[in-house]
């Protein structure tokens, strides 16, 4: 009957906040999900983002923000449990499955995501994308890493420097 007081939510409904992307798209999302961002959490605790105001995010475009919010909504229940110490193994496995699929995306999106996670201070998301990029590097040759990560091919000067380095650390290039 009596729903517990939760902030300024009424009738037990979750409090909603509005986020506005750099290209002026408005996203309405539960405050609990948006609060995965340390930056947004402070604004929301101050009562911001409600009603018609909305919180402008000039560094995040709508495509990236929609992806960021997909992550936050999925992870919000576990985060509310304080890092989910009482989460079941099934819950954890489901989150892991979600995470694996979530980062199975185009590299340019990965880069936008890690930038957004960094700006919005969403630790879990930043860590997830960093891990994905690290996995793309592991075991590859320098040229493969460069191509995988979208770096241009080395200039002759850079190539000479690379060759000298490879001589010095011969064991790492066998």
């Amino acid at each position: 009957m009596a729903a517990p007081e939760s902030g300024d939510g009424n009738n037990g409904a979750a409090r909603m906040v509005t986020l506005i992307s750099s290209d002026n798209t408005r996203f309405e999302v539960e405050a609990a999900a948006a609060s995965l961002s340390q930056t947004l959490q402070l604004t929301i605790l101050d009562g911001g983002g409600g009603g018609g105001d909305g919180i402008p995010l000039p560094n995040v475009d709508s495509a990236t923000l929609s992806k960021v919010l997909e992550y936050c909504i999925k992870h919000a229940p576990a985060a509310a449990n304080g890092g989910a110490p009482n989460a079941t193994a099934v819950d954890r496995a489901e989150l892991e499955r979600f995470d694996n699929e979530f980062v199975n995306i185009d590299q340019s999106v990965l880069y936008s995501l890690i930038m957004a996670a960094h700006n919005l201070e969403i630790e879990g998301l930043q860590s997830l994308v960093a891990k994905k990029v690290a996995d793309m590097i592991k075991g590859k040759s320098p040229m493969e890493i460069r191509r995988t990560l979208g770096f241009p091919d080395p200039t002759p000067e850079e190539q000479a420097e690379m060759n000298a380095h490879m001589l010095e650390y011969g064991w790492a290039y066998e």
């Binding site: 930038m115 960094h118 990029v133 996995d135 590097i137 592991k138 075991g139 590859k140 650390y169």
Partner: peptide
């Protein structure tokens, strides 16, 4: 950001120094 490059490099397991050495040649 350098900080984000570090975040990525931190996730290379410490028992894989070969990958870190190779990463020095990226740029």
């Amino acid at each position: 950001l350098d900080e984000l490059v570090e975040e990525v490099l931190f996730r290379i397991p410490p028992d894989d120094p070969m990958s870190l050495i190779r990463a020095t040649l990226v740029c």
